[in-house]
Design a binder for these strands. Sequence first.
DNA 1: AAATTATTTGCGTGATTATGCGGGAACGCA
DNA 2: TGCGTTCCCGCATAATCACGCAAATAATTT
Lengths: 248, 248
Amino acid sequence: MLKKERQAYIIQQINIHNKVLSSDLCVQLAISEDTVRRDLQELAEEGKLIKVHGGALAKSFHFTIESKQVYSLPEKKIIAHKAIDLIKDGMLVVISGGTTMRELVNMLPPDLNATFVTTNVPIALELLEHPNAEVIFFGNKLLKSAQMAVGAEVVQRFGQIKADLCLLGTNSIDLNFGITDLEWEIIEVKKAMIACAQKTVSLAISEKLNSTQRLQVCALDQVDVLITELAPSDEKLLPYAKRGLAIL
Amino acid sequence: MLKKERQAYIIQQINIHNKVLSSDLCVQLAISEDTVRRDLQELAEEGKLIKVHGGALAKSFHFTIESKQVYSLPEKKIIAHKAIDLIKDGMLVVISGGTTMRELVNMLPPDLNATFVTTNVPIALELLEHPNAEVIFFGNKLLKSAQMAVGAEVVQRFGQIKADLCLLGTNSIDLNFGITDLEWEIIEVKKAMIACAQKTVSLAISEKLNSTQRLQVCALDQVDVLITELAPSDEKLLPYAKRGLAIL
DNA sequence: AAATTATTTGCGTGATTATGCGGGAACGCA
DNA sequence: TGCGTTCCCGCATAATCACGCAAATAATTT
């Protein structure tokens, strides 16, 4: 095997998985670890990847780590972290949009082997960066304001799956009106997402508690878990706990 | 054996295997390694292949190795600019992926009122930035390497539309093999995109002319327009013009 | 046809490159 | 802190390359 060929293979692997392990490569390519390391070093010098202990990372990966943290609020990180524990290997997870979700996807453990279904373009892009996640995008007409696919086609396709978990980024949640949103087309899709999942989790920073929008996505009793950045014992959450929601 | 004959054989081998080893060639052709090396060097100077230690690689290898870097941006901008003139108000445009396409979408005039259909996530995201474009995303399982949706669902949905224009980012285009690509799932989608459009336009920087990959997307006669950064009178384009392609 | 010239080819030599191995240093994790 | 892994460095080996030169071949001239 030619050297350039090997390096092309490494680049390919990097582009797909966003990372490579030296140990893996030397098995796959049937060469010594030393040669792998030399290849990685060369490619790193050419700026094609970033060499780290044990292997190498895609350049884009590095950027996302460094830049995305800038506008991610610490609260959202806390929420995302709590939610990640709910995702187990082999699950089929329906996931909506929003910056909290972006953060969550970013923080997914690299060895997680789950399938994600979304209709949100930035989330899909972020999910594609994950080495092991399988990503399904239910597409159709895209709604500019929410950067997500909407419409009957999408709703219908959610009707054809049975998901384990629905992670719902939540704009507004209220004791009486449940989860609400702004646009008709969005709530249609969110309804479908909730309906197809066994368990629905609402992710909301505490500011969004007890606020309402015009249109109802679902009543409170359709939500199983509520995740905020607050401690479960916080008094703001007590009324929700009384309604039967698990609080994290 | 004549020199030209040998070199033709080498080119042939390169086209089939995407690489050759000097050591193999000198056995197959029954000549000394020195001669092989001289031949490879000549062919490399003519730009027919890339010489590396131990043999030579097809030009297409160069692309995969450079892939993540947005190289030859100025050329891509020229190409994108030429292609934009083909898009008129009210059109339904099918658009594939690639950095050239990203550039094109970026350069779209803000007052353009067209509908775009794509299966590529970054392109969709870029299109969403446009104030007037309507964006349709045909989704399904997403392919990590190409960041696009693939599979029967997608193909089927292209079968349900009649587009005015298909803008095809092209990896490799060749007089005999037409447009080719790397992955089975990708060519299936591209085929569907071409089939549903009245007019197919191939966007390719001149480096990609006369290179091939393993799988054929379509023959040359299914392409209506070829756009490169070269002047239409350039001699590299003449054979394509003779095959009936409009050159921009 | 013969001679001359130009081109191509093969070989030898020494230089360059690629690769693997061993030992010690550095790292990461518990 | 200690242990296993990974890394870095120097070296040895083998493969590949580049250069000059001479023989062989092809092309051109006389």
